[in-house]
Amino acid sequence: MSIKAGDQEAARGNSQLQVVVAGGAAIAKKSKREWQEFGLACLYMSPAILFLVAFTYIPFLRSVWLSLFVTTPQGATARFNGISYYSRIFNLDGSGRSEYLKSILTSLYFALLVVPLGIVFALGLAQLATLKVRAIGFFRTVFTSSIAISVASASVIWALIYSPTTRTTQWIIDLLHLNAASLLQHSGTALLAVAFVTTWTALGFNFIVTLAGIQAIPQELYESARLDGASGWKAFRYLTLPLLTPTLLFLIVINTIQSFQAFTQFNVLIGNEGPDGSTNVFVYSIFTAFWKDNRYGFASAMSVVLFLILLLLTFVQYRVLDRRVHYQ
């Protein structure tokens, strides 16, 4: 009996041991599996990581690094320069030359032209596209069409529209008594002319987003508003517009960011800093320093400043998007 009991005890002890051993093995197995999973995950992510490190992170850090140096025309660092390029950009170096600040302001001014124009056109088109008539789908596609048109091809076409040879915009020049052959050559109209082209290329996108916003407004609201005697302009002003505010805020931020990044249309339509420097937006003056003057260090400092500006706008964007979520 005692033997039996001892056997049982031994057996119990044995099984406990087995459990412990099995448990230890399970832990070892589990951690091995975890490591396997980790390795596999790294393997799966490695192509993306490789390309993003090589062409986004390292170049970005190198931009910051280069911005602190005077560089050779081959792009090598020549002499440590501290932050003097930055103080040059913001006119803090006491030189009194503020052309880079002016360039940032030109970008801002450009955004102030593009954004309201874009919103107004998009609102108009989206209102039209909510009409319930046959073949409205066709008109929606037409209104969206500029999504598929590149800024480069749009600029090539508009360069001819503005060109004195086609005389298409001559009537505006006559109307305003401009002393220039084309709208692109007058310091008072050049930036506006580029802004108009930009608005046209962005039209499709702004339209489709606005339309989606309007379609998200419950139809019952319009019906009850009509019962209350609000229709037409009143319904638009007091119902559509307030409910569309989140969408419009979103469009304002997106369009502002894209305006600050605009380059193609300036290079194709103007190709230099514009009449009296009136179209020398910040991205274009970076291009001049980088590409035309080969001042890689200075251009890098400018591109870091651009990064900071866009970062600020992106933060605003996320704040706006947060609000957008709360509204809906």
């Binding site: 062409f55 170049p59 970005f60 990044q261 890689y296 651009l306």
Partner: peptide, 21 residues
């Protein structure tokens, strides 16, 4: 890793273009 990938969205292409070139 999540933030590594998220971070790339914050870096505009224009700020990397010179070293890439």
């Amino acid at each position: 890793f999540f933030f590594f990938f998220l971070g790339t969205l914050m870096i505009p292409w224009e700020s990397t273009i010179i070293p890439n070139y």
